[in-house]
Every structure is written in structure tokens, then in C-alpha cells.
């Protein structure tokens, strides 16, 4: 083999490898660009179609009937319904989620049952939300209560948020150094007191973040509310009656042919998306601050 031919062959091979690499880098950046474009396009559509529809009536008036004039009516009943049901659902989810997350993190080591619970929680975390709606319908709506109601909607949302809170709680508690627990016990505190007075306190930021993300997640959920809370064209504070919510109102209005209803659907979509995205960003900022201050 002459040295000359070898170097020619290897340099052409080198050029080919470099070319393939450039194409690869190009393809990966295109993939990233596609995802970013999708995000920008969706947000842009929301702003373009939703922002113009916002007026004072959105927050002070209830939803209009069919055939109303463009600009009439608002989303007050849906906004308030969403807040009520999400708040109740979140309180339930926080109580159950933090306690079960604590059990998994603090009492669950080396326990077979704990790994089963952890696995079940993971399944519930990604289970289709519409199935939770069916479950609550079967349990509460068709048998116990006998009709659609806000409390059933709140229960469905609680079932969705609990696995999220459980997972975050366990993750956060596991981040706390063992020296904290040892120091507490050295002072004579029992295990439960150490968890409540020291570990929970040290994890406060993380728990708030988890709660915020859970709240953001359930505030946009539609499917489980369709056949639990149903929706209500009027303002209602009664937990035993059907209650309106932003997502179900969007579902009803967006698929209608009524221009004013469609306007309200876009405004509602903008409101939900703004809320969910800001909750996500605030949660992230909180988490970043919490981890950097330690």
C-alpha cells in the first residue's frame, strides 16, 4: 500500500464523516426548531384569537345564551366554578398526597408494600384522565349522589392531583439530608415529630412547588369534569348541584356555530393557558431558588 493512496482514501472518508455529522447536527436542530415553532404558533393563535375578545364583561357577567350579540356575556360562572372545584380537589389532594408521599419517603424503605404503592402511584400519574371521570361517575354520580354535582367534579380532580403531590412529596423529602433527622432525634424528638417539625419545614418550598404544578395540571382538565360536574349555564355556589368550569365551557362553546360563544371559548382558552403556563414558570423559579439557596 503506497502512503499516498492511503492518505487520499482517508481524507475522502474523513470528509464523508464530517458531512454526515453536519447533516446530523442540522437534523437535530431542525427537530428542536419544529418543537419551538409549534409552541410559538399555539401561543400566538391563543393571543391573536383570544386577546381581542377580552372585555370587562368576561369577569363580571355569566355566560350568554345561544344567539347572543357579539361581545355580550362573560365567563364569571365558569371561572368561579373552576376555582371552587380546583381548590377543593387540591386541598384533598394535598392532604392525602403529602401524607402518602411522607409514608413512601420516611417509612417505606425496604418495604415491599411501599414499592407496590409507588408503582400504583406511577400508573395513576399517567392514567388517562377520562377514566378517572368514569370512575367517579360510577361511584358518586350514579350511585351515592344520584346526579351530577360540583363535589363529584372536585373529587375527580382530587384523584388526578393526588398522584402528582405524592410523587413530588416523596422526591422532595428524599432530598433532605439524613443529618437533619439524626439531629432532631438526638434532641429527643420521635420520628413523627422530626418529620413534621423539621423535614416538612425544610421541604416547604418544594411542597409548595408540587402543589402549584398539581393545581396547574388539574385546572386545564376537561375530560373528567364532563360527566361529574357536567357544567351549568348559571352561577352556582352549591356543591351538590352541577357546576360550570372553564374547560367544559370551552368544549361546549368551541364546537358551536355561535360567533359569540366561539369568542368566549378563545378567551377562556387564553385564560387557562396563561394561568397554567405562569404556574409552571413560577413553580420552576421557586424550585430553582430553593435549590440554589441551599
Amino acid at each position: 500500500m503506497a502512503p499516498g493512496t492511503h492518505s487520499v482514501a482517508s481524507s475522502s472518508r474523513h470528509a464523508r464523516r464530517k458531512l454526515i455529522n453536519y447533516i446530523f447536527v442540522g437534523l437535530t436542530s431542525i427537530a428542536t426548531l419544529i418543537a419551538l415553532t409549534a409552541l410559538v404558533m399555539i401561543l400566538w393563535t391563543l393571543v391573536a384569537k383570544g386577546f381581542g375578545g377580552i372585555n370587562a364583561g368576561i369577569f363580571t357577567q355569566d355566560q350568554p345564551g345561544g344567539g347572543s350579540n357579539l361581545g355580550d356575556g362573560g365567563l364569571r360562572n365558569a371561572l368561579i366554578g373552576s376555582v371552587i372545584m380546583c381548590a377543593i380537589g387540591m386541598v384533598i389532594a394535598l392532604v392525602i398526597g403529602i401524607l402518602s408521599g411522607t409514608w413512601l419517603a420516611e417509612y417505606g424503605d425496604g418495604n415491599k408494600l411501599a414499592s407496590v404503592v409507588r408503582f400504583i402511584n406511577d400508573v395513576l400519574l399517567s392514567a388517562p384522565s377520562i377514566l378517572v371521570g368514569l370512575f367517579v361517575y360510577e361511584c358518586l354520580v350514579s350511585h351515592v349522589l344520584g346526579h351530577f354535582s360540583a363535589i363529584a367534579g372536585a373529587a375527580a380532580l382530587a384523584f388526578l392531583a393526588t398522584p402528582i403531590v405524592t410523587r413530588t412529596t416523596e422526591d422532595i423529602l428524599r432530598l433532605q439530608p439524613n443529618q437533619l433527622r439524626e439531629a432532631g432525634m438526638a434532641l429527643g424528638a420521635g420520628r413523627g415529630l422530626v418529620i413534621r417539625a423539621i423535614i416538612w419545614k425544610a421541604s416547604r418550598t418544594g411542597l409548595v412547588t408540587g402543589g402549584l404544578l398539581g393545581f396547574a395540571r388539574i385546572s386545564g382538565e376537561t375530560a373528567p369534569l364532563l360527566f361529574t360536574a357536567l357544567g351549568n349555564p348559571f352561577m352556582s355556589f352549591s356543591l351538590s348541584q352541577p357546576m360550570a368550569s372553564l374547560p367544559t365551557t370551552i368544549f361546549q362553546f368551541a364546537l358551536s356555530a355561535d360567533d359569540n360563544w366561539r369568542r368566549l371559548a378563545w378567551v377562556a382558552a387564553l385564560i387557562i393557558a396563561t394561568f397554567v403556563l405562569s404556574a409552571n414558570i413560577i413553580g420552576r423559579a421557586l424550585a430553582a431558588r430553593g435549590s440554589s439557596s441551599k
Partner: peptide, 27 residues
């Protein structure tokens, strides 16, 4: 107090299990 707290945490975790079982049974 510790026993009560432990029991509380444990029953919360069992609620999760009951949810999955209840979901299957209901369906």
C-alpha cells in the same frame, strides 16, 4: 403521637391503592 402519625401516613398511601382497585372494580 408517632403511632397515630405513622398510621395516618400509611392510610393515605392505602387510599392510593384503593383508588386503583376501585377504578378497576367500577369499570
Amino acid at each position: 403521637g408517632d403511632t397515630v402519625f405513622h398510621a395516618l401516613c400509611f392510610s393515605a398511601a392505602m387510599v392510593l391503592m384503593a383508588t386503583l382497585v376501585g377504578l378497576i372494580v367500577a369499570l
